[in-house]
């Protein structure tokens, strides 16, 4: 039994290393692979919105840091192109 579990642990270890190597290649380096797993993957979501869904509303802060408005306030007579992003 001990031998069986040693094999299982060995195989899992090899699979883990292989997965990390592939991820490092995709991300660019082992450090980037760690960054992707630690910081990116928890925040990446496909979401449930689909074409035809009601667009959700959310309160947005204006650049002055004080004023607020709602996304849906901007959807009236014309389509609204909504672009999300950050500086980095």
């Amino acid at each position: 039994m001990n031998r069986f579990w040693r094999w299982v642990a060995g195989i899992l270890g090899v699979l883990f290393l292989a997965a990390f190597a592939v991820l490092s290649f995709i991300a660019g380096s082992p450090k980037d692979a760690y960054g992707m797993v630690r910081y990116a993957l928890p925040h990446m979501h496909r979401g449930t919105l689909k074409v035809g869904s009601d667009a959700p509303d959310a309160r947005i802060v204006a650049l002055d840091g004080v004023s607020r408005f709602h996304i849906r306030e901007r959807t009236h007579e014309r389509p609204l192109v909504l672009v999300f992003g950050s500086f980095t």
Binding site: A40, H43, M44, H45, R46, G47, T48, L49, K50, V51, G52, S53, D54, A55, P56, A58, I71, R72, T75, H76, E77, R78, P79, L80, V81, L82, V83, F84, G85, S86
Partner: peptide
């Protein structure tokens, strides 16, 4: 909108995606 890190939507005049 599951927006992070970057994403684009277009909302039509009826308020739908």
């Amino acid at each position: 909108y599951a927006a992070w890190p970057e994403r684009i939507y277009i909302i039509d005049e009826s308020g739908r995606i």
